[in-house]
Write a protein that binds this DNA or RNA. Sequence first.
DNA 1: CCTTGAACCTCTAGTTACTAGAGGAACTAT
DNA 2: ATAGTTCCTCTAGTAACTAGAGGTTCAAGG
Lengths: 136, 136
Amino acid sequence: MYSIGELSKRTGVKIPTIRYYEDMGLLEQPIRSQGNQRRYSEDGLKQLSFIRHSRELGFSIEDIKELLELSQHPEYPCADAHAIATRHLEEVRERERKLRKLKKELLRITKCNADSISECAVIETLADHEQCVTEH
Amino acid sequence: MYSIGELSKRTGVKIPTIRYYEDMGLLEQPIRSQGNQRRYSEDGLKQLSFIRHSRELGFSIEDIKELLELSQHPEYPCADAHAIATRHLEEVRERERKLRKLKKELLRITKCNADSISECAVIETLADHEQCVTEH
DNA sequence: CCTTGAACCTCTAGTTACTAGAGGAACTAT
DNA sequence: ATAGTTCCTCTAGTAACTAGAGGTTCAAGG
């Protein structure tokens, strides 16, 4: 049996965040002590580790809900799990593409050697979209 | 003189968002018609274009506030503008690095060929951090 | 058994950058 | 004058937490 503080230390997830996951229906409601404090089993620890790791990989709370559900049915086909992961991968790729474009523009404008605002490439570019090399 | 709807069409910024920028102190309060409707000048259009473009490049509202302020003082040195842009570039780089790591893990796990959850690499990886090739 | 300090409880509100909707007033064209 | 569109303010919702207030429980020492 772990207290919420113990669980927090073992997983690195902050206490209010653990309660939040419970509220969201991600983490099962643990049993309570006589004084109404949360008491977690080994299973609770495993669930929270799963959640934490999924969050680190950028899955949304909703996705994790499904993934957790799936993980509790070893005999299910794993097509659904793959679909979630593949969709997420696509989102990550898309975000990366956008960041690369951003980086390109930012690299260009930060090379400015001007002294004053009146000639500054940063300000000029922001005021005039035409100066951008990529479309956005 | 542009109505808020006109301004919205010309800049591609939605009407509630324009009002939001005004509330945040980004966009100057325009004059009002007799019936209390917003009426924008050419300057308002320019300001909003600047804001929109800055947002497209990922600058925060707070950063844009400073950049707009700077842009209105052509004689100021542009070191501050550079500092903001450079810091932002660093953040973009950092996010890109993280996404690359994410992508690497996601690529690995989505290659799984299993049929059932019990052998699925997606689920296994989420349950066991040790299987990851990058640290996070 | 009692006390004390740490850890826990619930509930509310704040973060970022918007977006949607309700209920009502103003503008514009016929 | 009227109808239809556009506008007004205000409130609340989004994602995933995080912080704080005000109060209760737990565990260890005397």
